[in-house]
Computed example of a mutant assay.
Amino acid sequence: MNAPAAHHPIRGILYLMGALALFALLDTVSKTLAARHPVAVVVWGRYFAHFLITLVVFLPRYGTSLFKSARPGLQLVRGLTLVGTTGAVVAAFQHMPLAEVTALVFVTPFLVTILAVSFLGEKMPAWRWIPVIVGFSGVLLIARPSGNAFNIGVVFVLLGAVCYAVYQVLTRKLSAVDRSVTQLSYTALIGAATMCVLVPRYWVPGALDLRDWLLTGSLGVLAASGHLLMIMALRAAPATTLSPFTYAQLVWATLLGWLVFGDFPDGLSLAGMGIIVASGVVVAYSERFGKSG
């Protein structure tokens, strides 16, 4: 069993920033593939490649102890919530732009804060709700839902946000009893096993060309690396500290949406980015120099 998670907020924030950049790349590749292939095929590729990478990198070192968990049942639930998140978000990509999907996912920090305070016993001074809410207003400025945005894609995103909030809280809870590599391995195993059961009904032989196979393989690399950094971030700092900084993924998504899909951010989007960054700096400053419970 690991020692209780230590609090190193700056280290946790840096790990989180790396994870979010990788997740934005993961979403970009997923959206590209989802435009040509069923959701189940894309999600299967993401988890199967992730599982293979995990086995190659970690199994020689850890052996079967790689999957030794103090809470295997909770690891199963955690893995299934991430599969649900991935499937819902990839489905949303088939109906909505990258930045808009990413913006709507950012109901997640609110849910994480509520769950972390309620179930993990983390402290959240009342005043710290202010920068979180201000940060969310910046999200709305960057990706303003248009009148036709409220379609099935929105439902998929909100379902994904609920799953992702539970996943983050369970990751924090399990960080106190399981190694990071064990959490990463369970995520890959559960995702791959689940999708291997579901994907045959959607598989079309020969549908993936060489380029698509390479993109599919990259999903595993990006996912494995990103989630390892996320686990390390949640081990280093409380979820309530990290939550405001998850907005940085929207900055990455907006930039990638511009570069890959031609969505150039306008003035209001840039203003939203500034608001998000400012709210994150306020929370980081208070964490670094101390605050009362």
Rank of each mutant, 00 (worst) to 15 (best):
L219Y: 04
A237P: 09
L229C: 05
F245Q: 07
A207K: 06
G226L: 04
L234Q: 14
V260H: 04
L229T: 04
P205D: 09
R201W: 12
A224G: 06
P238G: 05
Q249E: 13
P238Q: 02
Y247E: 00
T216D: 05
A253K: 12
V260M: 08
G226Y: 00
L215R: 11
A207F: 12
T216P: 02
L208C: 13
G267H: 01
V199P: 02
M230W: 05
W258T: 00
L215E: 11
C196R: 04
L255A: 00
A224H: 15
T216G: 08
W213I: 14
L222V: 05
G217Q: 06
A248K: 08
L255D: 00
A248M: 13
R235Q: 11
D263K: 07
A207N: 09
L210K: 06
V260W: 05
T254K: 11
Y247W: 04
F264I: 10
A239G: 15
V199A: 05
F245P: 13
M232T: 05
T241A: 15
S225F: 02
V221L: 15
T254I: 11
V197N: 06
L259Y: 06
S225T: 10
R211G: 07
T254C: 10
P244W: 01
F264A: 15
R235F: 07
A224V: 11
V204K: 13
A253S: 09
L250N: 04
A248V: 13
P205C: 05
L242S: 00
W203I: 06
L214C: 04
L228T: 15
G257E: 04
S243A: 15
W252F: 14
L198M: 15
G206P: 00
G267S: 03
S243C: 10
S243V: 14
G257R: 11
L255H: 03
V221A: 14
P244D: 01
A224S: 14
D263F: 08
A237C: 07
T246V: 07
G220N: 14
Q249L: 05
V221H: 10
G226Q: 01
V221Y: 07
L242P: 09
L256G: 02
A233M: 05
L268V: 06
A207G: 05
L198T: 08
L250E: 02
L208Q: 11
D212C: 08
Q249N: 11
L234S: 10
V260C: 03
L214Y: 03
L219D: 06
L219N: 14
G257P: 03
A248Q: 09
A236F: 09
R211K: 13
D266A: 03
M232N: 15
L234W: 09
G226A: 04
A239D: 02
S218Q: 15
P205M: 09
